[in-house]
Design a protein around this nucleic acid. Sequence first.
DNA 1: GTGTCATCTTGTCAATGGCAAGATAGGATT
DNA 2: AATCCTATCTTGCCATTGACAAGATGACAC
Lengths: 187, 187
Amino acid sequence: MTGTRAAYHHGDLRRALLAAALEAIEEVGPAALSLRDLARRAGVSHAAPAHHFGDKAGLLTALAAQGFDLLAQTLTAAGDDLLGAGVAYVDFAVRRRAHFEVMFRPELYRADDPELLAAQGKARAALRAGVAALPTRGAPADADRDALAAWSIAHGFATLWLAGALPDRVGDNPREAARAVLRRLSG
Amino acid sequence: MTGTRAAYHHGDLRRALLAAALEAIEEVGPAALSLRDLARRAGVSHAAPAHHFGDKAGLLTALAAQGFDLLAQTLTAAGDDLLGAGVAYVDFAVRRRAHFEVMFRPELYRADDPELLAAQGKARAALRAGVAALPTRGAPADADRDALAAWSIAHGFATLWLAGALPDRVGDNPREAARAVLRRLSG
DNA sequence: GTGTCATCTTGTCAATGGCAAGATAGGATT
DNA sequence: AATCCTATCTTGCCATTGACAAGATGACAC
């Protein structure tokens, strides 16, 4: 975070633009995001966003960093329970869809941004902590493999859910459906 | 497929544009795809693509359909072995990256296109067949859940691999790395 | 009161997607 | 063979967008 800047002409344009971006992304996806549309939503001129974020990649970088921060918080709050962490991961993807969709599309933002890297580090650590509780099925050396498996299944389910690729019979409750699927790994 | 059209002015523009699109997507991603760029690559005027595909969504729809067809073929060739099918799925995502990235981004194409739906059906059937060999861990009613789990873990690993989100230590061989992770489910 | 700087606006340009109208050429019909 | 027909492709155009440059505005320090 660059910190909560004081209110200037607009009030808090940076925050307003990020909020507008989340709305817009939920409506049309991250690819079709238009800076000029964000400016209109915020009631400022078409060039105002450039000042705060440089360009579109800069804005998406800020969103991705915010997303990784939120994910780290979410996973930390979920605690050491692997199943709970997995469900929390899927739930995050669905409820913070805009964030999630940007986070895992690095071609849209600047992957070398310091704030982004810091947030990614936090999320990575939280992920690892949540997976640490996984009962290793074999030798301790398999821990890495197990962690990847857990991350993969949660991420895959979340991605397929967001893409609308899952059959109808999985229902409309992501937490419930995720729990059923994730149990396949822990059980 | 609308069929292999005869060679007119260009020769086989439709096919050439699809091939150019695959190249371009591998370079800049599906979002940044430019129809005019494709036209330049194929050596035709900027409006030529519109005739064959209508608009950008039309072109991506064709690519997605082609992708689901190829995936169905790949999974069918992999046979009934669950582990093999999972590895084939990940391998497909990496080697046919452009196709894969379009296929699971339905906001970019027309999800109600008949050819696309047909290809999706084939892929879905092939997926189900590959998963049928999974040793069900509980009651037979868990088959659906197990199928979703298998699909999720393969899809998640593939997606994370493509996003470059996986730690370096997983190596650079997707088939090998996928096999290790997927074994966690079967074993 | 003045200067300074972040903030925001206005104006502009190249690139893009999409549309309309026209040109071209292969194949069918007579 | 002459003509029509239709798919194919081109040229021209317009609105939108991202990015940049230069200027206006207002908060704050001194």
